[in-house]
């Protein structure tokens, strides 16, 4: 099954009413690759990522996950229609997302947050699910917090739990939607560290981020999105050191100024 691409986008378009936010994007992501998507707010980067696990529907084009068409089925006439939930779940069974707002369930302990989905989705017994959950919590360094509730943890810890929760499902592809944007600056590092470890273990990752330094460090490919199209893409050295398009040059210099300003206080 590995001769399929992990994710393949073919001329994907997405609109909200009359407003088109994704204007024809094609992209190949291979297994084991780490791809970062950067761009200003409103560039469509989060929407694009959310299309990849079908939290957003897309209007045109195709998204293939391991070669399987995501979210739709082709009718006899070639017209596509929404696939049954069960089929979409099947297509996405190896894809997990980590969200900006962590999205842990506040009424459940950390351990339950990780273990309960395993019981329900993977049909593990309670004991097996908890054992597997503990392994993942150890991996992100939070096994000692298993009995606490999300509200008792820092943002960085919550995000690491969210990563453990996703990892417990044993995904082959992980999507990160601005995973550090809601964190206090001093908590960003611990989350990036976990992500870096994952990339070194060969996880396929698509990361929407504002952490340029991190993107430069871990990515095999960097995509710069502007106004719903891929304005520029390439290996990090090229995109960050020799940007071709004026918009990317502008974006990077604004970013540099801002980080300089924030350093000056």
């Amino acid at each position: 099954m590995t001769n399929h691409l992990a994710i393949q986008l073919k001329n994907v378009r997405k609109s909200y009413g009359d407003h088109e936010v994704i204007k024809g994007i094609s992209l190949d992501i291979h297994h084991g690759q780490v791809v970062s998507i950067i761009g200003g707010s409103g560039s469509g980067k989060s929407t694009l990522l959310r299309c990849m696990n079908f939290l957003e529907t897309y209007n045109e084009g195709e998204i293939l996950i391991n070669g399987q068409l995501l979210g739709y089925t082709r009718g006899a006439s070639g017209a596509r229609k929404l696939a049954p939930d069960e089929q979409t779940r099947q297509t996405l069974s190896g894809v997990c997302m980590v969200f900006q707002q962590f999205n842990l369930w506040p009424h459940m302990t950390i351990l339950e947050n990780v273990a309960r989905p395993l019981q329900l989705v993977r049909s593990l017994t309670r004991l097996d699910a908890q054992r597997r959950a503990m392994l993942q919590l150890e991996r992100v360094g939070l096994a000692h917090k298993a009995k606490t509730y999300p509200g008792q943890l820092s943002g960085g810890q919550q995000q690491r739990v969210a990563i453990a929760r996703a990892l417990a499902m044993e995904p082959r592809i992980m999507l990160f939607d601005e995973p550090t944007s809601a964190l206090d600056p001093e908590l960003v590092g611990e989350v990036l560290k976990v992500m870096k470890d994952l990339s070194e273990e060969g996880m396929t990752m698509v990361i929407v981020t504002h952490e340029m330094g991190f993107a430069a460090g871990v990515s095999d490919q960097v995509i710069f999105l502007a106004d719903g199209i891929i304005e520029e893409s390439g290996v990090p050295e090229q995109v960050f050191s020799q940007p071709q398009s004026p918009r990317l040059q502008n974006f990077l210099s604004t970013w540099k100024e801002r980080s300089a300003e924030s350093l000056m206080g």
């Binding site: 779940r89 069974s93 962590f102 369930w105 989905p117 989705v121």
Partner: peptide
Amino acid sequence: SRGQLEAARDLGLTRQQ
């Protein structure tokens, strides 16, 4: 929050679950 529901869906839970 919508995010909590999206997380559930993303992890593969059905609507009833």
